[in-house]
Structures are given as C-alpha cells and as structure tokens.
Simulated assay, not measured.
Amino acid sequence: MSAPVPPPRGASGPLLVRQTTRVEDGERLHALLWRAGPGWRMISSTVLGGGIGERAWVLNAQVSHGYRRTDPDRHLARLARDAGARGPGVGLMTAADVSGHARACDGGVGAVATAGLGVRGWAASPAPGAAVPAGPGTVNIVVALPVALTDAALVNAVATATEAKVQALLDAGYDCSGTPTDAVCVAARTARPGEEVHAFAGPRSLWGARLARAVHAAVRGAAPAP
C-alpha cells in the first residue's frame, strides 16, 4: 500500500494581496501588494523584476492615464519600498483602478487580475509596431502555484495564462486579444530537496488546467462590461 501523498504547500490558495493608497500629483492612486516572502521563483514580462528568478513580492501599481515617466522600474521600486516590500520583487503598472481587481482560486492555484481595456485590439494586427512601449492601459495578471515548476514549465504557464486571458475576454463580450501593454507574472514554489518539480503547465496538465481556470475567472471578474 502506497503512502499518502501530502497536499502541496499552500493548497488552500497562496495569493493574498493587500491594497495600498497614495497621492501623486494630487491624484489618489491604488496599488496591490503581494508579500510572497522567501521560497518563490517567478517568471514575468515586467519592467521591474522581469525574466525568471527568485522574487519575494509583487506590486501592481495604478498610475495616471497621462503617465510619462521614463524610469518606470525606479518608480515601481520606490513604490514597493514605500509599501514595506524588501528584497527582489516584481513590479507591474496600469492606468486601471486596481481597487477593481478580481481574485480566483482553483485547486490551490491563485490568480489576481486587473483589467484596463480602453485601448485594445488583436495581437496579429497590420498596424506597424512602435520602437517605444505604449502607455499603461493593461490587463495585468498575477498567478501563484503551490508547487515547483521547471523553467520550461514556467514559460508554458505564461502561455497558458495568456490563452485563458483571451478566452475570458471573448467570453466577456470583447472583440480583442488584449491591450498593447498586457503583463503577466507566474510564481511557483522553489523546490525543496526530494520534492517533485513539475515539467508541464499546458492547459491540459494538472497544474496548467487549474491555472487556466483561475486566470479565466479572475479576468472575467475584473473586465468591465464592454
């Protein structure tokens, strides 16, 4: 008879965010901070903490619609420090009011989404690309899995989250795949000695399916009516 398999760490849902408020140039702005703490590897497409590495927090900060700063990474780092975050982390920004975020959980996978859809369209567009990034509008997605993933599975998880986002936008009545500045961050646990490291996170894998459902529900919840 085989021994029982213990539940993954944080199986009840690993992603809890705290909302903060600040005033910049007379405007009241919000941010969402997840203090993940040690023991997390994250992959993200963000200007602060992007790529793959050990990260201890994630900040999703609202900025003004006319945001023109040329140092968003430094700005996000300062906002995170002011909020009490320490160590390496991930910073996202959006012009959407993040107090309207939505959270979903499926089988231990947590997802939080904010959705600003004022400037949206299809990824494969005949329009020429720009040499500079577009201003913040943005669907931002943060996902946390209570298990360890290989680097390849982390990349796979980003693709799965993106597919689930597009599905959610279509289900919500939008005729688009997203905005020009959408960002995603996927967090997975750092493997402990003897612990399984999962090699797959596609939509039909165990953890990829849970991730897809959580992201779909969070984006649907955050997307305003078209």
Rank of each mutant, 00 (worst) to 15 (best):
P146Y: 09
V5W: 06
Q167K: 15
R55F: 07
S45L: 05
R213G: 11
G110R: 06
R204F: 12
S64F: 10
R220T: 13
D73Y: 09
V219S: 05
R18S: 15
Y67T: 06
T181V: 08
P180G: 09
A3H: 14
A191R: 09
E163I: 01
V158P: 06
R204E: 13
A104N: 01
R81C: 01
A111G: 03
R213A: 14
P180N: 14
D175E: 15
A127S: 14
V158A: 15
V90M: 00
Y174M: 04
W122N: 09
A85L: 04
L92W: 05
T138V: 09
L211I: 04
A130H: 14
R69M: 02
E54M: 11
S125G: 12
H65G: 07
G50F: 06
D171C: 13
T114R: 00
G202H: 09
A199K: 13
R41L: 14
Q62N: 10
S99K: 02
G37N: 09
L76S: 06
P14W: 05
T162R: 01
P14I: 01
H30T: 08
V166K: 09
G89K: 03
P133R: 14
T160Y: 00
L149N: 11
P224G: 09
I141P: 03
V166F: 04
A222R: 05
G89H: 04
T190W: 01
S44L: 01
G66M: 08
R22S: 12
A131I: 11
R35T: 12
T138I: 12
M1D: 11
D73N: 08
P72Y: 03
A11G: 05
G108K: 09
L48R: 12
L206E: 07
V119K: 12
D151C: 11
S99D: 10
A217D: 06
L79S: 03
G178S: 07
P7I: 07
R220S: 13
L48E: 00
G26H: 07
L149A: 07
A153F: 01
P7G: 08
G10N: 11
A188L: 03
R28D: 14
T181D: 05
G84E: 11
G91M: 02
A212F: 01
D171L: 15
V63P: 02
R189P: 02
V90H: 01
G108H: 12
V5R: 07
D82L: 14
C105S: 14
V139N: 04
R204I: 10
L206M: 12
A172G: 13
C105F: 11
P136R: 12
Q19L: 13
M1K: 06
A201H: 02
A130F: 04
W122I: 05
L48Q: 08
V166A: 15
G51R: 00
A124F: 11
W40H: 07
S2E: 13
T94L: 10
A83L: 03
V186W: 03
A152R: 08
A164H: 00
L149P: 12
V98F: 03
V139T: 13
F200T: 06
P224M: 09
A164V: 01
G107L: 02
G221Y: 05
G66E: 13
A214P: 00
F200G: 00
V90L: 10
D175I: 14
R204T: 14
A77W: 03
N60Y: 10
P193D: 09
D175V: 15
E163Y: 02
A56D: 14
A111I: 12
